[in-house]
């Protein structure tokens, strides 16, 4: 069973064992508009929780993506290089950004669950 959590910076994290898959939420993808470029962290790099880990660019602007949880990067979604539009088409599925081997499980527990994130977005 995987667990899904969200940040107030509009990233999502899906946890399977100690591997966390990270992407941006549908709300974020819709606010950005058409994604034309994604810069992902290199495999093997260690990212700290809350540190900038990726960049997502629309026609208009570049936005930073922060790692909601820290750890070693185990995979990056290479498909986004050729098809950045996947981020808009399926932000919480095929449009995932990268995976980390999570170093601190406690950080995950502090993130918003789906209901809390929905409430948070409503208030924006």
């Amino acid at each position: 069973m995987s667990e899904l959590r969200f940040t107030d910076q509009h990233e999502w994290v899906r946890l399977d064992g100690d591997e966390a898959t990270i992407g941006i939420t549908r709300y974020a993808a819709e606010s950005l508009g058409d994604v034309v470029f994604v810069e992902l962290p290199a495999k093997g790099r260690t990212v700290g929780a809350g540190a900038q880990a990726a960049v997502v660019e629309s026609v208009k602007a570049a936005s930073e993506v922060y790692a909601p949880v820290g750890g070693e990067v185990t995979a990056a979604n290479a498909a986004l290089e050729a098809e950045p539009a996947k981020v808009n088409a399926d932000p919480e599925g095929e449009g995932w950004f990268f995976k980390v081997k999570m170093s601190d499980k406690a950080a995950f527990g502090k993130l918003m669950d789906e209901a809390a994130y929905k409430e948070f977005v409503k208030g924006l």
Binding site: G33, D34, V36, S58, V59, K60
Partner: peptide, 9 residues
């Protein structure tokens, strides 16, 4: 800045 079609379209 854009309409529902989006900047690209």
């Amino acid at each position: 800045v854009q309409y529902p079609a989006g900047i690209l379209k």
